[in-house]
């Protein structure tokens, strides 16, 4: 019973975060989806080291507890949480730059702008441009590799 509840919670968090990342139309919400998925993954890892009727892995009254939860996944999750906050800050910094460059955080608008910038860079004539292309910027060189996939 307990196992079912916890596993459903962890996997649901992971999948909700992933779906939010894929479906949301706003870049900030995509970042929130990433954080939610991270929480689900961390919970899943801690669940992997759980043991019935056990104690925390800490010296207590002269000895380590007879039965204790596995300390290795806990150590991994501990570092993963701290890395997560670093990644989050980096993503926010990138969002700030994207907003400076394109003036918006809507995914479709940002993507359209990037495509136009790429086309301009490669010398492709635009069929019909809805927006005036923004000028040269450091973003151009940074996204050249990422935009080539289509």
């Amino acid at each position: 019973m307990l196992a079912a509840i916890l596993y459903v919670g962890a996997v649901s968090l992971l999948v909700i975060g992933l779906a939010g990342m894929l479906l949301s139309s706003h870049l900030f919400r995509m970042l929130l989806g990433l954080v939610i998925a991270e929480a689900g993954a961390n919970l899943l890892l801690v669940l992997a080291g759980y043991r019935w009727e056990s104690a925390a892995p800490i010296w207590e009254s002269g000895a380590y507890p007879q039965l204790m939860v596995d300390p290795v996944p806990q150590a991994m999750v501990l570092t993963a949480i701290v890395i997560g906050v670093g990644i989050q800050a980096l993503a926010i910094a990138l969002l700030v730059r994207i907003r400076q460059q394109t003036g918006s955080l809507q995914r479709d608008i940002v993507r359209e702008q990037l495509e136009q910038d790429l086309d301009l860079e490669l010398g492709v004539k635009l069929p019909s441009s809805m927006h005036a292309p923004s000028g040269e910027g450091p973003l151009l060189s940074g996204t050249r590799g990422a935009g080539n996939e289509q």
């Binding site: 992997a48 043991r51 019935w52 596995d70």
Partner: peptide, 20 residues
């Protein structure tokens, strides 16, 4: 299929035995 609450990882057991 993974049993819950009965971790099969040997590393944790080893660290438990000689963590001191």
């Amino acid at each position: 299929v993974i049993p819950f609450g009965d971790t099969a990882m040997k590393v944790g057991t080893m660290i438990h035995q000689q963590g001191g």
